[in-house]
């Protein structure tokens, strides 16, 4: 067969793509590799060792990082559950209650946390909590996290809800289900993949946050990112690389999970 001009191909695009992936992955891989370095000097390679992982769990800084990790996970789980619930209700309002006054405004409000720069949100939250006399601490971190997690949960949930025709709920109501029962017995089960991916997204976003947390955390309260930041300010130590690699692993597990759930949801949608 004679060679045909492929209109989808541009010379060099593959090279750029590979370059792009190298830039994205090189720092992460280098840090992951160096976290297994036996040497105390972070730049000299002294053989493979798990010493720094042992140090993360038993070393002098271990209690600090453990507490920070617990805080991070408690906040991320609580904030993402609450944000997911709020986002699910809002999605129902936006996709299944027809037109209502303030619909456009509601959408703008939900997307607001995405539009306001993080540092501005951080300043605003700190100023607000101080002005109303709210003591900063875990609670203020939690509230701030719920707010900026809402749009991240909302986007996948409302997209999924829009793709489910309302005929299933109509059928349910036709078969004597009240609107509430139709929601609970029909829409919610069909929404599971969308709600899960919204939750996972919110969870990772919460876990990721440094700037806002750093502003609204009370004295002595740390999450993993703020604890790591504080430590890095005094120089990159090998135990930081071990922690980073652990978090990298957790992130990869989560994103793979969310990818698989999303794919399962798509396949299911195709079946119907």
């Amino acid at each position: 067969m004679p060679a045909k001009t492929d209109l989808r191909r541009f010379p060099g695009f593959l090279t750029v793509t590979i370059l792009c992936l190298i830039v994205l992955y090189a720092p992460l891989i280098v840090v992951a590799v160096y976290s297994f370095n036996a040497s105390t000097s972070i730049t000299r390679w002294g053989g493979t060792s798990l010493a720094w992982y042992v140090d993360v769990f038993t070393g002098p800084e271990a209690p600090k990082f453990q507490q920070a990790a617990i805080n991070s996970f408690v906040i991320a789980i609580t904030a993402s559950i609450i944000a997911t619930a709020i986002a699910t209700l809002a999605s129902v309002a936006m996709t299944r209650t027809g037109r209502f006054n303030g619909k456009t405004l509601s959408f703008a409000l939900i997307s607001l946390p995405l539009m306001v720069p993080e540092v501005v949100t951080a300043v605003a939250s700190l100023v607000f909590f101080t002005a109303i006399g709210f003591t900063t601490g875990l609670m203020t971190i939690l509230i701030a996290h719920i707010v900026f997690c809402i749009p991240f949960a909302y986007l996948p949930i409302s997209a999924r809800m829009q793709s489910i025709p309302d005929m299933y709920e109509q059928a349910a109501m036709d078969l004597y289900a009240t609107p509430r029962e139709a929601f609970k017995l029909v829409l919610l089960p069909l929404m599971t993949p969308g709600i899960l991916s919204g939750f996972l997204l919110a969870f990772i976003i919460s876990l990721d946050d440094f700037l806002i947390t750093n502003f609204v955390k009370g004295a002595g309260v740390e999450t993993l990112p703020t604890a790591i930041f504080g430590s890095v300010k005094q120089g990159i130590k090998p135990n930081i690389m071990a922690i980073s690699t652990l978090m990298l692993g957790i992130s990869v597990i989560f994103v793979s999970l969310s990818w698989l759930i999303g794919r399962a949801g798509q396949n299911k949608a195709k079946e119907n």
């Binding site: 619930a85 709020i86 986002a87 209700l89 809002a90 129902v92 309002a93 936006m94 299944r96 209650t97 027809g98 037109r99 209502f100 303030g102 619909k103 509601s106 409000l109 939900i110 607001l112 946390p113 306001v116 949100t121 605003a124 939250s125 607000f128 509230i143 701030a144 719920i146 707010v147 809402i150 909302y154 309302d166 709920e169 109509q170 109501m173 609107p179 139709a182 929601f183």
Partner: peptide
């Protein structure tokens, strides 16, 4: 519009949370 009439009730948590805390 299958759940028509419930818009405000369903939007309220999002409004309250983002309105008050952002």
């Amino acid at each position: 519009n299958i759940y028509r009439g419930n818009s405000l009730k369903l939007m309220l948590p999002a409004w309250a949370m983002i309105g008050v805390f952002l």
